[in-house]
Amino acid sequence: MTASNTKGLISVRDLGVTFGHGTNEVKAVRGVSFDVAQGESFGIVGESGSGKSTVLRAICGLAPTSAGTITFQGEALKAPRQPAFYRDVQMVFQDPYASLHPRHTIDKVLSEPLAIHGLDDPEGRVERALEDVGLGQGFRFRFPHQLSGGQRQRVAIARALILEPQVLLLDEPTSALDASIQAEVLNLLDALRHKRGLTYVLVSHDLAVVAHMCERLVVMQHGREVEELTRSALQHHEATQEYTRNLLVASEGFKAKGTST
């Protein structure tokens, strides 16, 4: 599926993000462009520190855009984002610990966005959101520190879903989860996308997760895009760039000394 010349639901053009000044300057993203069509699932993979999270944060209005434009539904986004933007676009952060308020119960974490946006039936929505991510009602009045890592990540996903957004920006949504819960969350995300016509931009360091979830993907290194691939090109190991090929080899697992990467 190629959507490169049709205008996407989300369109990122020559995006640049720079943090700090002078000697502390970090060019986290330097000229990244991609389009994501309505209902599509788009993947971002790449090296640690290559700017993947920063791209998602920039779409969300949480990182300073120093160059380029980001368009949503045909309109260039302005900083700061309007509250209505967050009804349409929600992000699941890489770090579920930092993103959940330590002194708020799970119930509060989930009902707060409902109250802010004035949605009806908060009780029912909180219950359904917990069921959706495989957490029973027993978790409702616990605090984040009373949950395991994976349980917290599911709360973070439930919080993003509860406003029924059109677009989910997912930053390593399953890297804290064991294989069985990962499979459940990936199936859930897959089913929701088809049922509600959701659009995903998914960051993962796991090529298998991206191959499973995304029709197209971009590979990043040092803030730049290395190449854009379709799912089928990835599946057939048809990468044209050295770095992507290394990723594919490394995905096969650890090989003791002497074997090359």
Binding site: S180, A183, D190, D206, L207, A208, A211, Q235, H236, L248
Partner: peptide, 11 residues
């Protein structure tokens, strides 16, 4: 339950 790069079952 692990997904595979070269395509697997869905769900």
């Amino acid at each position: 339950c692990l997904p595979k790069i070269d395509g697997g079952v869905r769900p």
